[in-house]
């Protein structure tokens, strides 16, 4: 237990992982490319589904909450942008995150043939799913920026922090992917758990509502959920336009770094037995 927080071994693992990912970046990219093309090969709309699936989900959410329930958030002096942007600024990172988790839960199991029959750095397998989903997220973020530009005719300066935020999100996604993919080898039910979590989790993050709307007894759930902090950071950049949740930034960055290193160390510990279990 002590070694989880031991700075020396953490730093060492961090360096090891960075070296590994830089050395095999081409392989990772190539695998991510394959992941996208293989997933949709032979389908009529092909790669469109990578965008189409989350796009339809978002349209449904926007319709239900914006038009049917007529949720009124924003368009005030402190929150000038409209509800759709509020909702999307939370949904975009959340959907990418849960997509990468779903991919990670069978990143190793689904490539059992590769793992068993080839000698190659299997550490790239969980990362390739992250890269693949990241592409979708970047496209959505660009669409959102265009939407904001059209509706507001300007972008807040804080939008320049978006790459930084995405960078830490990627670290967290890689870390979580390492953990889930390693568990997935031993405990195959994990992919169903992740699916259930994806459906439920979207309501556990402050994406559709403001924290103030949550009844007091349930507030701890929101604050204990690490994804809330990620969402608040994205809302700060994309919606509020200023550091509305400074604590969330601190928590998000520290947590991302921690899970990145912890995930890799967890994976490294379990990987030697993969071949025996698969």
């Amino acid at each position: 237990m002590k070694s989880i927080v031991d700075p020396k071994s953490n730093l060492q693992a961090f360096r090891e992982l960075i070296i590994l990912l830089t050395r095999h970046r081409q392989l990772t990219m190539e695998m991510a490319k394959r992941e996208i093309t293989d997933r949709y090969s032979g389908q009529f709309f092909g790669v469109f589904w990578a965008i189409g699936h989350p796009l339809i989900m978002m349209l449904v959410y926007a319709f239900i909450f914006g038009f049917v329930f007529k949720v009124k958030i924003g368009s005030t002096a402190t929150m000038p942008l409209n509800y759709t942007i509020y909702m999307l600024s939370g949904l975009i990172p959340w959907m990418a995150f849960q997509e990468s988790m779903a991919k990670a839960s069978f990143a190793i199991v689904g490539n059992a043939n590769l793992v068993r029959q080839f000698v190659f750095p299997i550490e790239v397998l969980p990362v390739k799913g992250v890269i693949a989903t990241l592409i979708t997220q970047v496209i959505f973020l660009l669409l959102l920026i265009i939407y904001v530009l059209i509706s507001q005719h300007m972008l807040p300066l804080i939008y320049f922090l978006l790459p930084v935020l995405v960078f830490f999100q990627v670290l967290a996604m890689i870390g979580v992917s390492y953990v889930l993919s390693a568990i997935g080898v031993y405990f195959r039910d994990i992919k169903d758990l992740v699916q259930v979590f994806a459906v439920v989790g979207v309501y556990l993050i402050p994406a559709f509502y403001l924290p103030e709307y949550v009844p007091k007894p349930f507030l701890p759930i929101l604050y204990l959920n690490p994804f809330s902090y990620l969402i608040w950071c994205f809302q700060d950049v994309l919606y509020f336009g200023w550091f509305a949740h400074p604590m969330a930034w601190l928590v998000n960055i520290v947590l991302s770094l921690f899970i990145f290193i912890f995930g890799y160390r967890f994976f490294r510990k379990l990987r030697i037995m993969f071949g025996n279990v698969l």
Binding site: R23, H24, Q26, L27, E30, R34, T37, D38, S41, N113, L114, R116, Q117, F118, V119, F120, P121
Partner: peptide
């Protein structure tokens, strides 16, 4: 070590031989 443990390498059957060569060489570092 170079291991030919199975007859079928990591083929992506939709891609050309050239692309598969590149991918498999990447896998071998």
């Amino acid at each position: 070590i170079s291991a030919l443990l199975s007859l079928a390498p990591s083929w992506n059957i939709e891609e050309s031989g050239i692309e598969n060569i590149r991918f498999n060489l990447l896998m071998r570092g």
